[in-house]
Amino acid sequence: MISVFILLAIIGYLFFENNRVSMQNAMKFEMMYQARMLSSSIVMKAMDDGAKNEMDLASQHDFLKHLKHCRFQVGYYDKDKQPIYSEVDEFKVTDQSFFIEDGSAYTVMEDKSDHLGVHYIVLKENALSKNVQSLRIKIIGYLVLSFILMGIVGYFLGRLFLRPVREQIESLDNFISDTTHELNTPISAILMTIQSLKDIEPKKLQRLEASAKRLSVMYSSLTYRLEGKVEPSEVLCFSDVVKERVEYVKELIDSKRLHISLDLEPTEVLMPKTSSYRLIDNLLSNAIKYSDVGDSIGITLKDHVLKVKDTGVGIDKKVQEDIFKRYYRENDERGGFGIGLNIVLAICKQYKIKLDLESKKGEGSTFILTFPVVKK
């Protein structure tokens, strides 16, 4: 639509300029023709009187005043450029034959024969600027109407052409929704069963529980976009939320022998609890996924600023903006769906949390979240 509007604007401008020049040329020819006709009338009067300079000043002024002329304002000047009779106020004769000044068009014709003492005939026209302005308004009006019409047509054509795509997306969303809801039941059953198991090697049990919880986090991420529920916000102690979620994924952290450190100040945040869980779960999941065995994860919360820092593989500078796009994966070897950080970004936008990233390839990453202060 922008390209169409620019194209229409260019066409409209060229059309306006062409018509403006045509109007000026037509006005110039008409005024010069009328000036010649007046000059001819003066010559005929001078010839009828037998001598061009025999009329007294009063008769000369009276003749010029009542000389039948065109629709333009007329001024007659002698060879010293002094007015003999003029309807053109405060005009100084120039050598230009046609020019536009202050929205009015002027024609100056020189008659060197000086019949009746008239050396210059000046014509003034006041309607040219109004006509040009009227033309400009009409073209702008047509442009706006054309753009609106094309916008309406484009909107309905777009809906028509994109309908199959939209239907396919809806079908895919419904499929993912049905599939993920079917996954929820066995995941819950696995987690409950793990808690009741006894006489199993702790390492095997830990591995089983870590895998089940990873499935649970992935399920939560998949359903976030599909649920579309509006949850009421509440005042949360975010340090408690962080501790709870770190404890929840402890098996995942232990499975990679990661060192985790917490430095948390009690901080109040206004947002739904489920959204806070998803926010921390995805940040932790991302830090765990892109950390190597034995790396470190540090989480600090001070002055309403949360920092999640890892010493993992890091992110190249040129793709740091892309990693927040849905389905984008910077490292295919580490797995994932490419939606975790997109969910983090969506939650931050929804609850006015400022999101920053500091990262260097091979040296780890730090995600920085600045929360708005809760008003009491």
Rank of each mutant, 00 (worst) to 15 (best):
L8D: 00
Y13A: 13
Y13N: 07
Y13E: 05
M32N: 10
Y33T: 14
S39F: 09
D48Y: 12
D49V: 10
H66Y: 15
L67I: 13
R71G: 11
Q73P: 06
I84H: 10
S86Q: 02
E87N: 05
D89K: 14
Q96K: 13
Q96Y: 15
S97L: 07
T107G: 06
V108A: 02
D114N: 04
Y120W: 06
I121K: 06
A127N: 13
Q133C: 12
Q133F: 15
I137A: 05
I139T: 08
Y142Q: 04
L145H: 09
G151S: 13
V153I: 15
R159L: 10
F161N: 08
P164M: 06
R166Q: 15
S171Y: 15
L172A: 08
D173F: 11
N174W: 11
F175Y: 14
D178Q: 09
T179A: 09
T179G: 08
T185C: 02
I194A: 10
L197K: 01
D199I: 11
K203I: 03
L208A: 10
S216P: 06
M218I: 08
Y224V: 01
K229P: 13
E231H: 15
V235W: 01
V235T: 04
D240S: 03
V242N: 07
E247W: 09
K250W: 06
E251G: 07
I253C: 04
K256M: 12
K256F: 12
R257D: 11
H259A: 15
I260W: 01
S261V: 15
L264I: 10
L270E: 03
Y277Q: 07
L283Q: 00
L284C: 00
N286Q: 05
K289Q: 07
D295R: 02
D295A: 07
I299D: 04
V305I: 09
K307C: 08
K309H: 11
V313M: 09
I315R: 02
V319P: 00
E321T: 02
R326L: 10
Y327D: 11
N331A: 08
E333Q: 13
E333P: 00
G335V: 06
G336I: 12
F337S: 14
G338I: 05
L345A: 11
A346Y: 04
C348S: 00
K349I: 12
K352N: 12
I353C: 00
K354Y: 01
K360M: 11
G364H: 07
S365V: 02
